[in-house]
């Protein structure tokens, strides 16, 4: 790693002013950022740790919305959302491994927007609101392709508000080495329709599968997506799976998510 100055502000305001400095970079749990920095692929002058900000931690459910502080770990979401939003808790409980889940945060995951990460599928699949220190961003506007988001420089994800669906589930088919999603599908059923978000598969990063959403909104059952297919064009094609394979898996995982939704 290149060296940097480490700061750990106690408030969002202090963090925001630290982030205003030149080449400042926010640090959530560091489970992706620190390995990246070990490879010397990032060289911030200042690393602003967000995990000391009490206001940015915690999970609360009110008025049909689950609000998760940006610095809340995956482990905390897995345990605290289990009752109110089991589909999301299930997703959180399978990110990385137990030690990673004790450090990694939802804000860090969403800010990074790895094309194979799990949380982007939940945020997009619920139509979540990404709350930052300056504004609120709808998930549909937030994700802008792999590793790209609507966040401005220095902007901090302070919380995420996820509308709690009537039923939901996330199915991840893991890439055998990294255990990231080769294809992950989050399905959420709301009174006004179904949302389906796909991660891991596309060169464009997380995205909605609108054809499946329409079919499932009409008939929320696995059989509703029989006959639907996803084009292999634009799907990631690598060592671990061809585009055609990923496209196929999108259908399989969607069906399984619908069948398992609770």
């Amino acid at each position: 790693m290149y060296n940097f100055e480490f700061v750990q502000p106690g408030s969002v305001a202090d963090a925001a002013s630290a982030m205003a400095g030149e080449d400042a970079q926010a640090l959530g749990g560091g489970q992706t950022l620190l390995p990246t920095m070990k490879q010397r692929l990032a060289s911030p002058a200042t690393l602003v740790s967000l995990t000391g900000i009490a206001d940015m931690k915690g999970v609360s459910a009110a008025d049909g919305v689950l609000t998760i502080g940006g610095a809340t770990t995956h482990a905390t979401v897995a345990s605290e959302a289990a009752g109110s939003f089991p589909g999301l808790a299930g997703l959180a409980s399978h990110i990385g491994d137990p030690a990673v889940r004790n450090r990694g945060t939802i804000g860090g995951s969403l800010a990074n927007n790895d094309p194979a990460a799990c949380y982007p599928a939940a945020a997009l699949g619920t139509g979540a609101t990404i709350v930052t220190n300056t504004r609120e961003i709808a998930a549909d506007d937030y994700f802008q392709g792999m590793f790209s988001t609507a966040l401005d420089e220095g902007e901090i994800i302070t919380s995420v508000r996820l509308p709690i669906p009537q039923a939901s589930n996330y199915q991840k088919f893991v890439q055998p080495a990294s255990r990231f999603a080769l294809v992950g599908v989050f399905v959420a059923k709301y009174a006004d329709g179904v949302r389906v978000a796909v991660t891991g598969a596309s060169e464009e990063g997380v995205h909605r599968w609108t054809a499946a959403e329409e079919a499932l909104s009409a008939n929320f059952s696995a059989s509703a997506i029989e006959g639907l297919s996803v084009a292999a064009d634009g799907m990631i094609n690598d060592l671990h799976g061809t585009g055609a394979y990923r496209a196929h898996l999108v259908g399989v995982m969607t069906k399984r998510a619908v069948a398992a939704a609770s």
Binding site: P176, A177, S178, F180, L239, H240
Partner: peptide, 10 residues
Amino acid sequence: LTGSYMDYAM
């Protein structure tokens, strides 16, 4: 192509 445990499946 398999330079770490991210791509070499142990």
